[in-house]
């Protein structure tokens, strides 16, 4: 398929559809397709999740705890390190170095939402020995399929992966010359990440013509002149907002978009919380029955 190309009349068709609040797939401007989410997929990770949006976008987020040193200014906390990689297989437009710019953009946006002030996580939990050793949470995302609205999917999966993450236990011993610690390998002694439910979700509003849509398809993404990524935490606070794209937005529309995205994010937070609880319940049931919790394939 010829990527990134769209005719004048197709664009006009989409724009006028947005004006009428009837999009090309029959949805209204605020309709959000239900994200599909799965957790605990990657055995090597301390936490992982996958999210599919609108049947085509597909992302996988893995979280691994790694020993490291804290930043000198925040010695009593651990750190997050975020990376995003669009797999070259995800879309033809990513061939060669085409993905570099997109990777930077997504990684920075994701880390802004997750590592920003009061993003919710208790980073003190990740401290092992103050000013010396801490856990670094490596949040690595890969985009498996690029079908529009990637950042929403990334944060959706990242939030679920954080809820799935367990930090290995450590035992600190005081020795004569300083302190030392041992890492406990037993998964049952690992602690769930605290306050993972405070992490925000992102909803992107795409400006098309003089209106906006949420949960855009690839075609709609092509038609949009600007977009607004809004991250909202369960307390209803906007944790991060970012405009993107080469167009401009009137202040009144900006506020409308922000409000719509915020409301949708609050709704999605509830939906996801339910999905996470559901996952944990089934996991527990399987464990009590003594069944294997591992699945034959992550695509099943």
């Amino acid at each position: 398929m010829s990527l990134g190309l769209i005719s004048v009349v197709e664009r006009d068709f989409v724009e006028r559809g947005v004006d009428l609040d009837l999009r090309t797939d029959g949805r209204g401007r605020n309709d959000y397709r239900l994200p599909r989410m799965e957790m605990n997929l990657v055995a090597q990770s301390d936490g992982s999740a996958r999210c599919q949006l609108g049947g085509s976008t597909d992302v996988l987020v893995s979280i691994r705890c790694e020993l490291g040193q804290p930043e000198p200014t925040t010695g009593d906390r651990g750190r997050l390190a975020v990376s995003v990689e669009c797999a070259p297989s995800a879309s033809q437009q990513l061939e060669g170095r085409g993905a570099d710019e997109l990777n930077t953009e997504l990684a920075e946006a994701l880390s802004r939402a997750l590592t920003g002030p009061r993003s919710g996580l208790n980073l003190r939990q990740l401290c092992i020995v103050e000013n010396m050793h801490c856990w670094i949470l490596n949040i690595d995302a890969i985009v498996l399929d690029l079908g529009g609205n990637v950042l929403d999917a990334l944060l959706y999966a990242a939030r679920a992966a954080l809820a799935d993450t367990r930090v290995p236990g450590t035992q600190v011993q005081s020795l004569d010359e300083g302190v030392d610690f041992e890492v406990d390998d037993d998964i049952n002694h690992a602690a769930w990440l605290e306050h993972a439910s405070n992490v925000p979700l992102c909803v992107t509003a795409y400006k098309i013509g003089a209106g906006y849509v949420l949960d855009a398809t690839l075609t709609e993404e092509l038609c949009s002149s600007a977009r607004l990524h809004v991250s909202v935490n369960p307390a209803g606070q906007v944790c991060a907002a970012q405009k993107n794209g080469y167009g401009s937005i009137e202040p009144s529309l900006l506020i409308t978009m922000l409000q719509a995205a915020k409301e949708k994010a609050m709704y999605l937070l509830e939906v996801q919380e339910e999905q996470i609880q559901q996952h944990k319940r089934t996991l527990l049931e399987k464990q009590t029955r003594g069944e294997s919790v591992k699945r034959p394939s992550i695509f099943m």
């Binding site: 906007v238 944790c239 991060a240 907002a241 970012q242 405009k243 937005i249 900006l254």
Partner: peptide
């Protein structure tokens, strides 16, 4: 508004 970048 041509750009907006906000965190926190």
């Amino acid at each position: 508004v041509t750009h907006l970048l906000h965190r926190g």
